[in-house]
C-alpha cells in the first residue's frame, strides 16, 4: 500500500513538472509571437511613419509642465483606464 502511495505521489509530482514545462513552453512561444509579430510590426510601422510612443527626444521648451485642464469624471473611477 505504501509503495502504491509513494508511486502515485511521484507520478503526481512528475505530471505537475511536465505540465509546468508545457505551460512555460507555450508561454514562451506566445510571448515570442506577441513580441516579434505584435509589438515588432507595430513598432516598425510606427517608426517608419514617425510616430513616437514615448517622449524620449525632447526639444528644449520654456517649461516642461503640462497643464491638466480636465477634471476626471466621477464614473471614470470605476474604470481600470
Amino acid at each position: 500500500m505504501g509503495m502504491v502511495k509513494e508511486f502515485l505521489k511521484s507520478l503526481r509530482e512528475g505530471m505537475k513538472q511536465f505540465a509546468d514545462m508545457v505551460a512555460d513552453s507555450v508561454n514562451l512561444l506566445l510571448l515570442l509571437a506577441v513580441y516579434f509579430v505584435g509589438i515588432g510590426l507595430v513598432s516598425i510601422v510606427a517608426k517608419l511613419s514617425g510616430k513616437h510612443f514615448l517622449d524620449i527626444g525632447r526639444q528644449s521648451r520654456q517649461s516642461y509642465w503640462q497643464k491638466i485642464e480636465k477634471r476626471p469624471e466621477r464614473n471614470s473611477f470605476y474604470r481600470m483606464f
Partner: peptide, 20 residues
C-alpha cells in the same frame, strides 16, 4: 506597452520577465 513599442527590440528581456 508604449515603452516596448518605442524601444523594440531593445526591450526584449523586460518584456519576457514582466508581461506574464
Amino acid at each position: 506597452l508604449s515603452q516596448h513599442l518605442e524601444m523594440f527590440p531593445r526591450s526584449f528581456l523586460p518584456f519576457f520577465l514582466a508581461l506574464p
